[in-house]
Computed example of a mutant assay.
Amino acid sequence: MAEKPMSPFGELAPSTPASLSDVKKNIYGRYLEEFNVGDIYVHPRQFTVDRSFAQEFATVFMDANPLYLSAEYAKAHGFADLLVHPLMVFNLALSIGVQNNSEKALANLGYYNAQFLLPVYPGDTLSSRTKILAVDDKGPDKPGIVHVRTLCLNQKNEVVLQYERKIMIYQSNGKPKGNPKPGDASAFFPESKTPALKLPNLKFPTEMKDVTWGHTYFENFKPGQIYVHQNGRTITDEHYQWTFRVGNTHPLHYDKLYSAGISGPMGGEPVVYGGLVFGWLAGMASRDISENAIWELGFTEGYHTQPAFSGDTVTCISRILTTEDKGTEYGIPAGEVQIQFIGLKNIKANDALDKFGADLFLKENDKKKLGKEKIPEKIFEIERRLIIKKQP
């Protein structure tokens, strides 16, 4: 251990004249012209997810699945410990990449092909890196679209999550640019078009059947069912703290001075970071849908169709699209269920279904060509796929 005597240091500012000749104004994020297809960005910062952080996420975001709450339940099912919630993993992976990928973004256009490939446990350290797949430059007067693939790695450099998203970004058009670390097309990036899911040897502990209720097993779900989740969640200014707790550095989500300078629907007040909205919606649905899920396989075609702000109350509806009996393919009796998941704001889910009916389940971007009006209360749409165990 290094040891050095310490002594008090004196005040210097009053006797040091201030010079304005060397002022630093660091700028973060990239404009459209700063992205190059094939570049790989190894994002700064890592997060070690300790047990209290993992359980706090699961409880704040209201998830009912005991895999994220009870170490004993998770171990009884064959996992090494309680699981870090997949949406916590997703939020960390996305947020760590904001400084490189989207701190200059006008909007996040969508999530695609998200696949959770390996359990994350308390004590694991997560990092992320991104590859630029495509850049659609529409000219200086219109925002372009950057298509990226992001990998989330654990401390063993194993891929725990792989996903894509599309980001709307303007050219700089004369605005000051920063000095971001250049991309490196040769950087380690273990992507796969056909990644493998790696789960432990799962178990089927019938003695723990009373830890969950009995209406969310695989057999309970049938294609065509619509679950109207009865509770809402009013989002408070807590979203400021949670934005930075998961590492998201975009000022749109926590800086009122920045937000006040933006015109249009995203301006005025800080916008709730969409990954948090997704987390609250999924948590509210969990008692009806995923309490007995054994794994979140992933999600795709996810869009934030309207922003949410502090004070908004979010609600949600799920529609069962397909069910597929997998026998014991995963080591225990289970099946896969694919779900269309709809998020709403400032309207009860019951009232939304009565008011909008089947139009709720049409993609908002398809409404114009169908001659339909967009639904202003609808804020989110995505498809999820879960592994759900059968009735013991």
Score class of each variant (00 low, 15 high):
Pro86Met: 07
Gly110Thr: 08
Asp210Ile: 04
Glu219Lys: 12
Asp237Thr: 14
Gly214Pro: 10
Lys175Ser: 10
Gly267Gln: 03
Leu82Phe: 15
Ala185Asn: 13
Leu87Arg: 01
Gly261Tyr: 03
Asp255Met: 03
Ile289Pro: 01
Tyr227Leu: 14
Thr206Glu: 15
Pro5Trp: 07
Val159Asn: 08
Pro176Cys: 00
Phe204Cys: 02
Asn91Trp: 00
Asp312Ala: 09
Asn157Val: 10
Glu291Phe: 03
Leu117Gln: 01
Tyr227Asn: 02
Gly224Met: 10
Pro44Asp: 09
Ile226Pro: 13
His215Ile: 04
Phe244Cys: 10
Ser186His: 12
Asn157Cys: 12
Asp325Lys: 11
Ile382Phe: 00
Pro122Gly: 08
Tyr330Phe: 14
Glu301Tyr: 02
Tyr68Ile: 12
Ala105Cys: 14
Phe188Thr: 10
Ile294Leu: 15
Leu87Gly: 01
Gly174Glu: 04
Pro200Asn: 11
Leu360Asp: 11
Lys368Ser: 12
Asn100Val: 00
Thr206Trp: 09
Phe356Thr: 14
Ile167Leu: 14
Gly183Tyr: 09
Gln338Cys: 04
Tyr217Gln: 13
Lys355Leu: 14
Cys316Lys: 09
Val314Lys: 06
Thr305Lys: 09
Glu33Thr: 04
Pro190Ala: 01
Asn100Ala: 11
Pro44Met: 07
Ala349Tyr: 09
Thr249Leu: 08
Leu362Met: 08
Glu164Lys: 02
Ser15Pro: 01
Arg30Gly: 11
Met62Ser: 09
Lys326Phe: 04
Gln171Ala: 05
Gly174Asn: 08
Val277Trp: 02
Lys198Arg: 13
Gln340Val: 06
Asn157Lys: 15
Leu151Gln: 04
Val271Asp: 07
Gly123Ile: 06
Ser310Gly: 15
Thr300Trp: 00
Gln46Met: 14
Ile347Gly: 14
Glu219Gly: 11
Gly335Lys: 05
Glu219Pro: 14
Asn113Tyr: 01
Ala187Met: 07
Gly283Ala: 10
Asp22Leu: 14
Ala76Lys: 04
Lys104Tyr: 00
Ile320Gln: 04
Tyr41His: 08
Asp354Trp: 06
Gly97Trp: 01
Lys369Trp: 04
Cys316Trp: 07
Lys75Pro: 00
Ser7Gly: 03
Ile375Thr: 13
Phe380Ser: 13
Ala349Arg: 11
Lys326Ala: 11
Arg319Pro: 03
Thr130Val: 03
Ala187Glu: 07
Leu117Cys: 02
Asp81Tyr: 04
Asn108Leu: 13
Gln391Asp: 15
Trp280Lys: 12
Met208Leu: 15
Tyr31Glu: 01
Ile40Gly: 04
Pro17Val: 11
Tyr330Ser: 10
Gly110Val: 05
Gly123Pro: 06
Leu83Met: 08
Arg30Leu: 10
Phe9Ser: 14
Glu377Asn: 13
